[in-house]
Design a protein around this nucleic acid. Structure first.
Length: 559
RNA sequence: UGGGGUGUCGCCAAGUCGGUAAGGCACAAGGUUUUGAUCCUUGCAUUCGCAGGUUCGAGUCCUGCCACCCCAGCCA
């Protein structure tokens, strides 16, 4: 899959690993892990983490484990596990081992008993509220719990009875005995076990005490002999705790946690919670809505794994806050599709044309290359007929010479076909344009007319031979570039026009299209069949991304 | 006002022992073109949050400021 061109460019994590490998740390091994919690779908922010953890390991001939961080059965479910695996595989990565944090529940419990025996953990019987009150604030130290000095025997007994199900949820928790006055709140006797009488998607009803992240993650990493444990910046102040647990347990493998900043993409959201709310509130179609930055959404939209990997490489890895422009992502997919997507013609917003001097009941097959620069992609035959459709954007009753499309009384080149003149505009009573009466110059197929220069080239589809198709165009979901920036009602920032649907026409060759093919509709952009909505009987195309549109910029400037 | 981080071009981001600011995206101007696409050429930070200091020389070292982000789940 990845060749050298897919190697990550220089970044601080690569430097750390390079140094470690050079010094023979961990015997020169590089083992990473990707540890999602199965409580939603993966998004492009996760793709950044995936590309990093898998990519870096691969660059150093190491390996990567996929580990589901399933310590909170209340929020998780098995349905997300398969979706996550599908997305990671689709992105092009292969994990060494598939693990679950829940695989380690037994070991985790024993380690906790050991911590109790060594007086490094205790059962606290304060309520959640009381624990919060004892924790202190950002600027004030906390207070010790009255239960902090229970005997080892009492703690062990209580903890085992917690496991045995003798207590109700919330009655007791197991806490680490560290320092209630630590300036780092994470070190103020963090809770590591809580009682939850719920069924777990992996372990069923075997457990009613569940370990928490800070305690579970570092031990899981250690047990898997992870060398470099990459995570986002929010875990930076958890690192002392990560290290504390492994040190106190004297684990012989002590992975290095390295934090990097998470991705922010302009005009969209990366918060799983908020994405879920958009789904619940029916603002989008589901986790795979093409407007969402989820991997499933991007896939349905028509993005390729290569383009997403390229994106992750282009944005780099640092510890600074970022807000990447959509243009970077779009550039990646255009780059890929320009060389890879066969060209075809499709009319999004059709305007009917009758070519009055062209014979009726005649379909002339015209040969067109599938790619202007790549002959190996072959060619196809496209029918030309008396009645065709062009896009309404490509006709103006009046326009100056800068407008390189069809204008009343003037000529334009029909892509790979004839030069055509607009003679008459047919309107309804309200002045809406119904159709155009045109004529063609039969001596212009494959050659330019003599003595005059046509304004430009437009695309078209035969009215009788073309296929009707629903065409969906997308705009960003939000109207501000940082909807995640404030906790304010982000749904008020929704772009109400993020999905535009048109009844268009596409050339007949598209009747054979399948959903993982992507095409360039000439002059319009890149499209693919919607994997959910499209059928043989009624085609539905999604626009992956438009073509770069210089004309739109010129237009915008002049208004 | 505690702790942890970050500040290099509009957006990302390289910048080894201090040696005189990569690259990408975007943008601008040309050229090619039966896609206003692609492609090609060219331009785009005397300056690295600010202010001092050390030095022959500092984005890189020191000092002091400023701004922004994260942390008070029995979430991850």
């Amino acid at each position: 899959m990845e060749d050298d061109t897919e190697k990550y460019p220089a970044n601080f994590i690569r430097h750390i690993i390079e140094k470690d490998v050079a010094e023979g740390k961990n015997g020169g091994a590089v083992i990473t892990r990707f540890p999602p919690e199965p409580n939603g779908y993966l998004h492009i922010g996760h793709a950044k983490a995936i590309c990093l953890s898998f990519g870096l390991a691969k660059d150093f001939s190491g390996s990567t484990n996929l580990r589901f961080d399933d310590t909170n059965p209340l929020k998780e479910s098995a349905e997300f596990i398969d979706a996550m695996k599908e997305d990671i595989a689709w992105l092009g990565f292969t994990w060494q081992e598939e693990r679950f944090a829940s695989d380690y529940f037994e070991q985790l419990f024993s380690f906790a008993e050991r911590l109790i025996e060594e007086q490094k953990a205790y059962v606290d019987s304060l309520s959640a509220d009381e624990i919060r009150e004892h924790r202190g604030t950002l600027t004030e130290p906390g207070k010790d719990s009255p239960y902090r000095d229970r005997t080892v025997e009492e703690n062990l007994d209580l903890f085992r009875r917690m496991k045995a199900g003798e207590f109700a949820d919330g009655e007791h928790v197991l806490r680490l005995k560290i320092d209630m006055a630590s300036p780092n709140i994470n070190m103020r006797d963090p809770t590591i076990y809580r009682i939850r009488h719920v069924t777990h998607h992996q372990t069923g009803d075997e457990w009613c005490v569940y370990p928490m992240y800070d305690y579970t993650h570092c031990i899981s990493d250690s047990l898997e002999e992870i060398t470099h444990s990459l995570c986002d910046l929010s875990f930076e102040d958890h690192r002392p705790l990560y290290d504390w647990v492994l040190d106190e347990l004297a684990m012989n493998v002590h992975p290095q946690q390295i934090e990097f900043s998470r991705l922010n993409l302009q005009y969209t959201l990366m918060s799983k919670r908020k994405i879920k709310q958009l789904i619940d509130d029916d603002i989008v179609d589901g986790w795979d809505d093409p407007r969402l930055p989820t991997i499933a959404g991007l896939r349905r939209r028509g993005y390729t794994p290569e383009s997403i990997r390229d994106f992750c490489r282009r944005i780099g890895v640092t510890k600074s806050d970022n807000n990447v422009e959509l243009a970077v992502l779009e550039s990646c997919i255009r780059d890929y599709l320009d060389s890879d997507a066969p060209r075809v013609m499709g009319v999004i917003n059709p305007l009917k044309i009758v070519i009055e001097n062209y014979p009726e009941d005649h379909a002339e097959m015209l040969e067109m290359p599938n790619h202007p620069k790549d002959e190996s992609m072959g060619s196809r035959q496209v029918p030309f007929t008396r009645e065709i459709y062009i896009d309404r954007e490509d006709f103006r009753e009046e326009a100056n010479r800068k407008y390189k499309r069809l204008v009343s009384g003037d000529e334009v080149r029909l892509r790979y076909a004839y030069v055509m003149r607009a003679n008459e505009v047919i309107k309804d009573g309200d002045g809406n344009i119904l159709e155009l009466r045109c004529s063609y110059d039969e001596d212009t197929l494959g050659k330019n007319p003599e003595g005059r220069k046509v304004r430009g080239v437009i695309h078209w589809v035969s009215a009788s031979e073309g296929l009707p198709a629903k065409i969906r165009l997308f705009d960003p979901l939000f109207v501000v570039d940082d909807p995640d920036g404030s906790d304010a009602d982000y749904e008020a920032l929704i772009n109400s026009d993020s999905l535009q649907q048109y009844d268009g026409f596409v050339e007949s060759s598209l009747g054979e299209a399948i959903s993982d093919q992507r095409f360039q509709f000439e002059r319009e952009g890149y499209f693919c069949l919607d994997s959910k909505l499209s059928s043989k009987e009624s085609l539905v195309f999604n626009r992956v991304v438009s073509l770069r549109d210089t004309w739109a910029k010129i237009e915008k400037k002049s208004t």
